[in-house]
Structures are given as C-alpha cells and as structure tokens.
C-alpha cells in the first residue's frame, strides 16, 4: 500500500512532463485541414483543459482503463500492455533464471578456486557479459547462429522455443556478468568469516560448509540485485525486441515517448512503476527470510 502515493507521484509527473514536452501526437500532420485535426484531438479529449484531462486520466486509470493507444488505434493501451508484458515476462524471467543460475555458479566456482584458471575463465565470461553491449552481441549471434550455422531463427516470434533461445541468452549475458562478480566477491568474504572457520573446525565436509553455511549469506547481495534487475528485465528491452522482433512491451517505452503517444506512455509508466514496487517488496521479503539480521522485530 505504501506504493500508492509513489505511483500517484509518478503518474502526475509523467502526465505533465509529456504535455510540457514540445510536439504532440498529431504534430506531424501539417497538411491537415483544421477541422480534421480538431476531430482527431477531440476523439482523444485533447481539446479539454489540461486539469480536466488529468482528472479524466486518474479516474480511468483507477479502473485500469488508459484508453486506446494514439498510435496503434486498433488496441487499448491495457491490451497492448497485457499482450506485450506476457511475452516480455516470459523472456525476462527465463533470462533472469539463466543469469542467476549461471552467474551464481560461475561466481561460486571462481571464489572457491580463486586465482586458478577456473577463476580466470569465469572472470572472462563475466567481463564479456558486462562489457559487450547487447546491441553488439545480439546482431553477432544472429549472424553466426542464425545466418551462418542456421541453427536457430534469426528473428521473429511464433511462441516456440527456437525463437526464444537467442534473445534469452543475450538478455541474460550482462546479468550473468554482474551476478558472477557479485557472487564471487561475496563468497570470498563469507568463506573468510569466523563462523565458516568454526564449521570447518568442527570437521564438516567442504560441500556441506559451502552449501549449508556459506551459500545463504554469500547470495544476499545477489538477491538484493535480483529485485530491481528482474523488474528491468521483465519489462522488456527495446533493443532486444527490435533486433529479434519480439512482440514485447519494451519498445513502447521508447516509441510511445517519441510518438508522443500520451495514453500509451501513461500506461507503460504506471505498469513499470508497479513492477518496480512489487519487485522491491519481494526482494525485502526474500532477504529477510535468508538473513535473520535483516528481519524486523
């Protein structure tokens, strides 16, 4: 419930920034007779005073009604968000799952065999994931895996797994890099802690010490990172969606703003805000479960 005032502030600021920004949804239509332009504005209530428009927006938003998109007029903003978010979440969650498992795996391996070839190999993978931007990796994989080896389709979407593999890998890569580095650093620190030494001194096996005693504490920074990172990933990436032609929600953040598609921008902004708030809340809960020190009362 604490999220409600945040969302309200977000909605208000976005609403007025969009109206203040130069150019409107129908600016490009210079050759239009005035009457036609007025008809178009009236159909989206843009002829009303701005306060009335804002009140109308708030009232409708409470009922999850953002009206039709100004750019894609066959669809309501709600429908575009639901359709797009379903796809983006599927790709995003899968990418985060891959990134978490691989990143944690690489990070742990690097920490346990510090300064060996295993560590350097893990570090190399992590750095590649972090340093090479997705708009380079994406087209490169398309070229090699899709065009040359013909293993997977280059782009497109029909719901089958073949179209999902490349985008998930590309989306997962930077997260793998980040998570691996977080995990390695945190695991090294935890393995040095007194209670781990105590556990070892009690004669517990290395595997048991690692998974039962060290892992829960070492993964805390990763969990803290996962909340916001998942929120960003599941709301889509405009680069991934355009390069791989995925019907997700990410493009709407960019095209909506460029086209001054007021209704679409308001819809996706509130959607994103909600996801962030929910993801942060979930992160807090998981952290509390993992670490007794964070638990309140």
């Amino acid at each position: 419930m604490q999220g409600v005032p945040t969302l309200f502030a977000l909605a208000t600021v976005t609403f007025f920034i969009m109206r203040i920004a130069p150019g409107g949804p129908f600016s490009g239509n210079r050759q239009l007779p005035k009457a036609i332009l007025e008809n178009m504005k009236r159909s989206f209530h843009l002829d009303e005073p701005i306060w009335q428009q804002f009140a109308r927006f708030l009232w409708n938003a409470l009922q999850f009604d953002f009206g039709p998109s100004m750019m894609y007029r066959d669809y309501s903003v709600a429908r575009l968000i639901v359709d797009g978010a379903t796809v983006s979440m599927e790709i995003g969650l899968a990418a985060m799952l891959v990134a978490t498992v691989v990143g944690v795996g690489l990070g742990t391996a690097g920490a346990v065999r510090r300064n060996t070839s295993v560590d350097y190999a893990c570090g190399f993978v992590a750095v590649i994931g972090l340093a090479v931007p997705i708009f380079v990796i994406g087209p490169l994989l398309q070229l090699v895996v899709g065009l040359q080896w013909k293993l997977l389709p280059i782009a497109g979407w029909d719901g089958t797994w073949r179209y999902k593999v490349l985008p998930i890998i590309v989306l997962a890569l930077p997260n793998i890099g980040y998570i691996a580095r977080l995990m390695r650093g945190s695991m090294i620190e935890v393995l040095r802690a007194d209670y781990i030494r105590t556990a070892r001194a009690k004669g517990l096996g290395a595997r048991l010490v690692l998974w039962r005693h060290a892992f829960g504490s070492a993964i805390l920074p990763v969990v803290a990172y996962l909340g916001p990172a998942t929120a960003i990933t599941v709301t889509g990436s405009v680069v991934i969606e355009q390069v791989f032609q995925i019907p997700g929600i990410g493009r709407y953040f960019v095209t909506g703003a460029i086209n001054r598609d007021y209704t679409l921008v308001m819809g996706v902004t509130l959607f994103y805000g909600t996801i962030i708030i929910v993801a942060n809340a979930l992160t807090d809960i998981v952290q509390a479960l993992l670490d007794p020190r964070i638990r309140h009362e």
Binding site: V102, V104, L106, T108, A109, V112, R113, L210
Partner: peptide, 14 residues
C-alpha cells in the same frame, strides 16, 4: 576432493 566436489556442484547448476 572437497574442492572438486564444490566445483562439480557449481557446474551442475550451470
């Protein structure tokens, strides 16, 4: 052997 086991389990996650 312990170390190897740990790496093994990490890699099995991958």
């Amino acid at each position: 052997t312990g170390e190897r086991a740990m790496i093994k389990s990490a890699l099995s996650m991958v």
